[in-house]
Design a protein around this nucleic acid. Structure first.
Length: 298
RNA sequence: GGAGGGGUAGCGAAGAGGCUAAACGCGGCAGACUGUAAAUCUGCUCCCCCUGGGUUCGGCGGUUCGAAACCGUCCCCCUCCA
């Protein structure tokens, strides 16, 4: 049986590099699990690994979408499952690398997307948060107790599932999928991580982040991709409402906040084997990870 | 030197005698998460032995049963006049 590896963790911990090293060590290929790296032309803000850094390791799912395309966890799940089958047939180890928690969980765990996708014309859409919550309270009091009334999307989804299946979500997120993945988490001391994040934003600026953001601003302002960190912060600057330094400050701040949310997710939502990386000894931790994986499958 | 305005929690900013450990925003911390997830949402955020206690609103001194709020004085900051 060919194992499935996954590298997760907050942004700027070096997931891409570790992914390549693992791919080299275990005859693997990379599958990206970053919600914005699927889009063509969005390279700088998404910290997409450039071709010449890929060390000839195939990277799947990068650049598969046009920025105008919509995408969802559901589609991602289908794509990745197909990809995993394909790699295994070729005898390759699938290595999922990314920071989009829900996407990873949907693939690595037994997520079943039942019920229809939300439609904008559904009668529910017109209800207020309070009305939706009340509805949920009537249909599924046990579910409503741990969902806040303001969490509109969750309530909506919950109601959809009840409508189409007559019951609540299956407790599927507790059951790891049959893939039995080995999930490796990369983390760093908070101050070190935050420092790296800020330094990386500076590097992105040198690489032309503002031009990329402006491209998104002019061409894709109303699409999904416009909400990526590294773009949306520049929009008010382009409008003349804030100064450039302020926009940059916000990009850094939002990146730090995002990293924190990622930590919370991976710590509490998934079963992860963590590696605390020392920013000065990145190679050493790469070896540790490789040894760990070898040991795990011995 | 003269005339005004102002100094409030990490920052911004309300409050103009008791309902104030002090609204609100930001930042920070923690958390949630099934079809936009780099999204969306929640809680906490002066200190402590925390269903209670202790110190706060530039400093000091007063008035008052009671002061961040009133008076005096001193120290800073800003604007205008000289």
């Amino acid at each position: 049986m060919i194992p499935i590896l996954s590298i997760v963790g907050p942004t700027a911990t070096g997931k891409s590099e570790v992914g390549i090293v693992l791919a080299q060590a275990f005859n693997g290929e990379i599958i990206s699990a970053d919600a914005f790296q699927f889009y063509r032309g969005l390279d700088i803000a998404t910290a997409k690994i450039p071709l010449d850094a890929q060390q000839s390791i195939p990277h799947h799912l990068l650049d598969i979408l046009d920025p105008n395309d919509d995408f969802s966890v559901y589609q991602f799940q289908k794509c990745v499952h197909a990809k995993i089958d394909e790699l295994r047939e070729r005898g390759k180890t699938p290595i999922l690398v990314g920071g989009s928690g829900l996407y990873l969980k949907a693939v690595l765990y037994d997520y079943r997307f039942i019920g229809p996708k939300r439609r904008d014309d559904h009668p529910y859409v017109r209800l207020s948060n309070e009305e939706l919550y009340e509805l949920l309270r009537q249909r599924a009091p046990e579910a409503s107790s741990d969902i806040h009334p303001n969490q509109r999307r969750r309530i909506l989804r919950c109601l959809e599932i009840i409508d189409s299946t007559g019951q609540l979500n299956p407790e599927s997120d507790l059951i790891p999928s049959e893939l039995h993945p080995l999930i490796i988490g990369l983390e760093m001391e908070r101050p070190v991580l935050y420092q790296r994040i800020e330094k990386r934003v500076d590097t992105m600026l040198d690489m032309g982040l503002i031009a990329e953001a402006h491209m998104v601003y002019t061409e894709y302002r109303h699409t999904q991709v416009a909400q990526a960190i590294g773009y949306k912060e520049f929009f008010p600057y382009f409008e003349g409402d804030i100064r450039l330094e302020e926009a940059i400050r916000l990009v850094k701040q939002h990146s730090r906040n995002y990293a924190k949310r990622q930590m919370t997710w991976f710590k509490n939502q998934m079963d992860v084997h963590w590696f605390l990386r020392d920013a000065d000894q990145l190679e050493r931790s790469q070896k540790q990870v490789i040894d760990f994986v070898k040991d795990f499958y011995k």
